[in-house]
Design a protein around this nucleic acid. Sequence first.
DNA 1: ATGACATATTCCCTGTTGGACATATGATGG
DNA 2: CCATCATATGTCCAACAGGGAATATGTCAT
Lengths: 121, 121
Amino acid sequence: MVRSPATVDVFNAIADAHRREILDVLVGGEMPVGAIVDELAISQPQVSKHLRVLSQVGLVHCRALGRHRLYRLNPTCLRPLQEWVAKYEHMLNARLDRLDDYLTELQRQEGTGSNEQQGAP
Amino acid sequence: MVRSPATVDVFNAIADAHRREILDVLVGGEMPVGAIVDELAISQPQVSKHLRVLSQVGLVHCRALGRHRLYRLNPTCLRPLQEWVAKYEHMLNARLDRLDDYLTELQRQEGTGSNEQQGAP
DNA sequence: ATGACATATTCCCTGTTGGACATATGATGG
DNA sequence: CCATCATATGTCCAACAGGGAATATGTCAT
């Protein structure tokens, strides 16, 4: 209910792998839809829809050129994301408690992740 | 079909605002579920569910202490996200193609008169 | 053992999502 | 004006997410 329409929020926009791929392709520079379709082998309607979402969020800009639509990145809109991640970066870069790291690896060995929370030590 | 269950991928995990809030709260340090519930005013079952997702993705670790479960951040798992954003950071910080930037500003029709980004071709 | 507390899990429901497919829009060239 | 290219949009569908409420699990205190 409270869930935002996702086409309005950068975090949701980049939650989709295809959308991320499209953005990654667009790093190469402005290009028409066809080029993206060709690079990614996603159906053209899908690419258009994803571009629409990205556009609504503001992550890409569109420019008409003849019958082509040239899309290009507008990385500015990644700022909120960047800032959010930045809050954690200092924890990322600083070495954590070695024990913590060790426990992390231990827990990872469970693999299936069916139940991360184990009983009391 | 190809769509991953979303509870498996960091990008999806942080797509949810509530999940982000929980992480943000956990920046304050290890704490039990009740504290999170209290801070965020999300229902306890919901918090537990979100914690489960975060746990599966690896973003949080859990430790049992008596009848409490102490959760704490594991920012390491934000690396993929950080790296992905990093690809765009240089575009964010560096001046873009002066023309692109110029056009962007034009399209935005911003009248703030900020001068800082000059193309200077 | 019993009851109180802290947390996890289950069931149900509704809204949204992304994909496939077909079709509409819009521009271009003859 | 018509055919064609490039892209957008609409419809239908299966899957899933997240919320609420009730309930199960597990732990402590007495």
